[in-house]
Design a protein around this nucleic acid. Structure first.
Lengths: 252, 252
DNA sequence: CGGCGACTTGACAGCGATCAACACCGGTGG
DNA sequence: CCACCGGTGTTGATCGCTGTCAAGTCGCCG
């Protein structure tokens, strides 16, 4: 262990690079984002999911691959004893690799707000693969990004205290869907407490307590029930994963 | 909730299909396994990692993609306060998507036993991609499998009690690396307590207690420190994820 | 008004983390 | 040969975070 090891991992240092990071990232990813969207638009079919509606992973119009156009989709799995886990969040631009996930018992998708996705079923995926072989590289890089997100999330739910997890959650949302500004970020926020709690592997009551604490401390503030403002610095100070998340997002 | 919902998820029912499942699965996957291996053998370079050696994800001879030939590799991430998380296990035949994982702060790979991998760096990956474009589909399907494993593991560490997690762990190992037999499975087992504990997001002491309990109950038994025998039924009864894991493995 | 769902908050209990002591083993050097 | 040591694993005692239960608030709607 060298001393600069911990230093390079401190939230403060990573935070200095935030402005250029978050803003630059959007530009650099524009290319692959657009390519993915035009790919999905060409071969996929648009589907709507109403707010709070859950659809069994293989129910209804099954799809193998989906691109989220708007809204946030949750992948959930239900276990015996009323236990449920939200496995990941799909934000606009994210790809859903439904064929793997869907085979699990108790797996469902749930919409936060009104969700629109472009879905490819087995057949249209094969078509796409034949006609646009180059697209596979794009899908692979999306899968890789997804793998990393899942890994970081595992670390969060496995090793962080409840308030650290909550800070990680808001930081993640801020990085993924907010309009970033210098000190704060604001975004629409319609997730239910149960869903947040299940995403962070904690109890709804405990979550509520932590959120109240954050509100008291001014880390987050609600302008109305569906819109939140978060403070970059305060959040980063409260999660050990801040450096990793910011660094990762800068490079993506 | 329909009554057959819980029934179809019960370990017992899934267990009935185990024999044909585990044995059939090996055969059906033989094809893509072989393809993946010949692909990696052609474009990758062989690397050895000594037992218990950790290598920083981007240190030494960096690789972007790796196929595990023998041994087990752990992806780990270190957090402040001596917290560490083992994010996933790579068993022989598994692909390592190192380019995503490697960018994280504190990320390392650690070898369990002697590990051999076939690594592709950026350049050889580009070569491979140009010369064998069909291989991408194979990589994508491996990535998809990996995504599912990570999701199930998230559910395990997020929502299961410590003994349930341990049962899940042994069941996972048995499915992935054991020579299956009717009632029991046996396999080489060299992972350290610290690594298991960090994989399951629990304390080493707690893990030790749970393992002692399993030994007392005859769920697992050691023939020597490096070789273990596990009982299918006893394990399945102790984890709510048994059905999902068996079902998934049967279809893979 | 009454009922309902989403959320909050307090009191309490329990699981698992923490700390400490101890057993065991292979290596090393007197 | 034995004493010493560090690494690994086990086990008991204790503590605290967070799950559980219960009551209460608020907004919405029939």
């Amino acid at each position: 262990m060298m001393s600069d090891d911990t230093a390079s991992r401190s939230p403060g240092k990573a935070l200095e690079r935030l402005d250029s990071a978050v803003i630059g990232q959007r530009a650099s990813n524009q290319l692959s984002d657009e390519a993915l969207q035009s790919f999905a638009a060409q071969y996929g079919t648009e589907m709507q999911i109403a707010p709070d509606r859950a659809l069994p992973a293989y129910g209804g119009q099954g799809f193998r691959l989906g691109l989220v156009k708007s809204g946030i989709l949750l992948a959930t799995i239900e276990l015996p004893n009323d236990r449920r886990q939200v496995l990941c969040l799909y934000c606009p631009g994210n790809l859903i690799f439904a064929d793997a996930f869907a085979r699990n018992e108790g797996a469902k998708f749930k919409a936060v707000g009104e969700v629109t996705i472009l879905g490819l079923n087995d057949q249209s995926f094969c078509n796409a693969q034949a006609q646009a072989p180059g697209a596979l590289a794009m899908l692979l890089s999306e899968a890789t990004r997804h793998i990393n997100d899942l890994m970081l999330h595992s670390a969060a739910i496995g090793r962080l205290r409840s308030e650290e997890r909550l800070a990680t959650f808001f930081l993640e949302l801020a990085l993924r869907i907010a309009q970033p500004a210098r000190d704060a970020a604001s975004f629409e926020f319609r997730m239910r407490r149960d869903d947040i709690a299940d995403y962070l592997s904690m109890n709804r009551d405990t979550l509520s307590r932590s959120m109240s604490q954050f509100r008291r401390d001014g880390v987050i503030s609600f302008v109305n029930p569906n819109f939140v403002i978060v403070q970059w610095k305060a959040l980063s100070d409260r999660t050990p994963l801040a450096a990793a998340m910011l660094e990762w997002h800068r490079n993506t």
